[in-house]
Simulated assay, not measured.
Amino acid sequence: MSHSVLIFGGCGFLGCHLVKHFVQTPEFASVHIISRSATRSKFHIDGAIYHTGDLTDPDLIKRLILEIKPDVIVHAATPSAVTGTRKEYELVTIRGTQNLLKISKDSKYLQAFIYTSSSTMAKGAEHLNLTEDCSLANEDPQMPPYARTKAIAEIMVLEANKPLKKPSRNSSWEGHLSTASLRFPITYGSHDTQGIPGCLNALQNRQTNTILGDGKNLWSFCSVFNAAKAHSLLASALLNPDSARPTAAGQAFNINDGHPRLFWSYARTAWKYAGHKPSLNERTWYLPAAALLVLASFLEWFYWIFTIRRKRPFKLGRQQVEYMCFTHTYCIEKARERLGFEPVDDFEGGWRRLFCGL
């Protein structure tokens, strides 16, 4: 049976890859996108249908869902983890998700709801091979607002899980919904508007010999291919449950490439394929994490006071410092077991194709 999918946030970096993957997956006959930038986005994918809409406008979203009649919704819309403000997180991440869940449960046709979440919303500055049952950022008021609001939104999504028992072809799904979430760390690939430009900016400013922290912290990165593949696997698992596997409904799943790497390998690989060749006598400077955290906290308060909570430090906020100085690794065994997810580990190849077009 073919299905229809509706993607919120399908015009962004990860979103455009999700759209392309669903369009190329035979199980999904129609792929719709609702985005504020639907008419002006550079990342349109042939075969997809675009609608202009804002997640914070529930009346418009309700009309579009009634018109499209999707079987599955992918909620990938989110303010930037780097430049987003508390107000945006409250409005889009929490209130937008809350409204979308209510509208979804009112639909007679909608069966599955997937939330595109973040591994980095786990509690604490350092994450060591965490599983999905770890404590989340909503439990700590000192955690960055992006992490806390993503955690709150994911909890709402998972608590909304109420699958229809023994559905038939003509069953009404009103009042029912199968929900799940996918947690991603730093994701890399084409159309990235933050990570890669940041690396190239550092290269242009000759900042390639400065390391924040001791440079030994590991990260679980995720290619956009693996991220998109995980979405379609989860959609299939929610729409067509396999009795031979534990259920995916009501569950969160860590998704990444499966092999942790040094955090600074991300930037160094980007610099390498951008043509950078470090000199043999180049000295590397290591800036201590403790001092950087103090500086980041001061900048957060400075911006908070003098911009009336409208802006955050772009390059040296506390969240960015924690990313660059501490280990963030996550276990994907649950996704392997319940979704049949097996990542393609092609870190070097992905970067080579990105920069060299190979």
Rank of each mutant, 00 (worst) to 15 (best):
H231I: 01
L234D: 12
D214I: 02
V344A: 04
F355N: 14
D59S: 13
Y146F: 11
A230V: 02
Y303D: 10
A160D: 12
C331P: 01
T25S: 15
Q24E: 15
C222V: 11
R352G: 12
G195Q: 07
S279I: 05
I33N: 02
R318A: 02
A202E: 09
L60V: 13
L18I: 08
R318I: 01
L203Y: 13
A235I: 05
E88V: 09
Y146H: 08
T307F: 10
L354I: 11
Y266Q: 07
A252L: 13
K334A: 08
A125D: 09
S118V: 06
L55C: 00
E132H: 12
D133G: 12
S178D: 06
P26V: 11
S171M: 04
N254K: 06
D345W: 11
H231V: 05
S232D: 14
K108E: 05
R336V: 05
F253E: 00
S172D: 15
Q207E: 15
K87T: 06
A244E: 12
A237I: 09
W264G: 01
N205M: 06
R353G: 08
L233W: 07
H191L: 01
G12E: 03
T307P: 03
Y50F: 13
G213A: 04
S223G: 15
A291L: 09
T247K: 13
S171G: 05
I73G: 04
D242L: 09
R206D: 10
W285N: 14
W264K: 01
R245N: 07
R95F: 03
V224A: 10
T25D: 15
H127N: 14
M121D: 10
V92Y: 00
A290Q: 10
I73L: 03
G12D: 02
R353K: 09
I152V: 14
H176I: 00
D59H: 11
R261F: 04
W173Y: 15
A125E: 08
K165D: 10
Q194N: 11
K150G: 00
T210S: 08
Q98V: 00
G12P: 00
E337K: 11
Y330S: 03
H191R: 06
K105W: 09
A151V: 08
P144L: 04
T78A: 14
D242N: 15
P141T: 09
I152D: 07
Y50H: 03
E159V: 01
T284H: 10
Q320Y: 02
T327W: 09
D192H: 04
F225D: 14
L262M: 01
T247I: 02
W264C: 02
W271K: 09
H259G: 00
L339R: 08
L14G: 05
T52M: 05
P313Y: 13
P313E: 12
P185M: 07
L287N: 01
R318M: 00
H127Q: 15
E333G: 09
M121V: 06
P343T: 12
F225C: 06
L262N: 00
S119R: 06
L158R: 13
R318N: 00
S119C: 15
A252Q: 11
H32M: 02
R338S: 06
L110H: 05
R283Q: 12
I45V: 15
H191P: 00
Y303C: 08
P246A: 10
G53Y: 04
D46T: 07
T179I: 03
E159M: 10
L203N: 09
S135E: 14
T56R: 08
G213V: 07
